[in-house]
Simulated scan of single mutants.
Amino acid sequence: MPFLTNEEGNQPIDIYYQDYGKGQPVILIHGWPLSHQAWEGQVQTLLEAGYRVISYDRRGFGLSSHPLDGYDYSSLASDLNAIIQQLDLHKVTIVGFSMGGGEVVRYLTDYGTERISKAALIASIIPLVAQKEDNPDGVPSEVLNSIMEALKNNRVGFLKDFHKNFYNYQENKGRMSEANLEYDFSIASHASPIATIKAAEAWAGTDFRAELKNVTVPTLIVHGDADNIVPIKTSADQAAKGIADNEYHVIPNAPHGLNLTHRKELDKLLLEFLKK
């Protein structure tokens, strides 16, 4: 199995990754609480279009190391940097889905744009999930607190139902199968319980608004207007206002997990953006 080790930080972290194809490199960063397997459709599409496609498991998820700590975004961005450096990648497009949008922005904050040509934020949490006085459209604290309590006291039970809302399953049965829900549950339930909680604390509590100015490469922003997990007004709408060089697309009726339910629409946008 392909692993590389990030030596930066308090302890070595082994990162599982898949590296297919040739051409311009595209790195796919998965969302919470899944693994690189969530990108199955996009890997196929990008390979067929002639790109080099690299996907990996965030620490604590999939086959990567399951450490006790290190789930803050700078630590997570250091894992991304280890991949870029050790594979000696240049002119990379980094694509972050949901929580993965945080790694995109924090990487650009901590490591700059020398090796990056483009970025993409897909159903991303950027710039802020939580409701605050100056972010009234965010997710209320009582909702976020209830998620944390459920993860601590009934993690598997919470995850069993989570992806129904992730995909707006009742409305999108024609675009996916119940087997997709079972597949995601299997992936999510086998993640580190500690990582599942601490990564959730990171995406729920990190404010990236001051870092949007660091996103200076051309950036694709795609969000669904029916996203029940990351409301569009607190995320993509604000990201589009704060990132100078962006291309913003809203997919009508698309849920959070639009990379599956609205794969054709997303893949078309992604390929058009990469070719520009």
Rank of each mutant, 00 (worst) to 15 (best):
M1D: 03
F3D: 02
L4M: 03
T5N: 00
N10A: 07
P12N: 07
D14C: 03
Y17S: 04
Y20K: 10
Y20P: 01
G21C: 09
Q24K: 01
P25Q: 10
I29Y: 02
I29D: 12
W32N: 03
L34N: 09
S35L: 09
H36Q: 07
W39Q: 00
W39F: 09
E40W: 03
E40A: 09
G41C: 02
Q42V: 04
Q44S: 02
T45Y: 04
L47H: 00
E48A: 10
Y51T: 03
R59V: 05
F61W: 14
F61C: 14
S64G: 09
S64I: 04
H66K: 13
H66A: 07
D69C: 12
G70A: 08
Y73F: 15
S74P: 08
S78D: 07
I83L: 05
Q85S: 11
Q86D: 05
Q86R: 12
H90T: 11
H90K: 15
H90I: 04
V92D: 08
G96A: 02
G96Y: 00
G100M: 07
G101E: 00
E103Y: 08
E103L: 04
V104R: 06
R106F: 12
Y111N: 02
G112T: 06
G112Q: 00
T113H: 14
E114H: 02
R115S: 02
A119P: 03
A120T: 04
A120M: 06
S124Q: 05
I125Q: 03
I125A: 01
Q131L: 08
Q131F: 06
K132C: 06
D134C: 01
P136R: 01
G138R: 02
S146C: 10
I147C: 01
M148R: 15
M148W: 10
N154A: 02
N154V: 00
R155L: 04
R155S: 01
F158P: 10
L159K: 03
D161M: 12
K164Y: 11
E171P: 06
N172S: 00
G174Y: 02
R175L: 03
E178P: 15
E178I: 15
N180H: 15
F185E: 14
S186C: 12
S186Y: 10
H190C: 11
I197N: 12
A202E: 15
T206H: 14
A210S: 14
L212R: 09
V215P: 03
T219Y: 06
L220F: 15
L220N: 07
V222N: 13
G224Q: 07
A226Y: 08
D227N: 06
V230T: 15
S235I: 12
D237I: 04
D237Y: 08
D237M: 05
D237Q: 13
A239C: 09
G242M: 09
G242E: 11
G242I: 14
I243S: 13
I243A: 15
A244K: 09
N246I: 00
H249K: 10
V250C: 09
N253E: 14
N253V: 07
H256W: 14
H256C: 11
G257Q: 14
N259C: 11
L260F: 01
H262F: 05
R263T: 12
R263V: 10
R263S: 08
K268T: 06
L270R: 07
L271Y: 15
F273D: 09
L274Y: 09
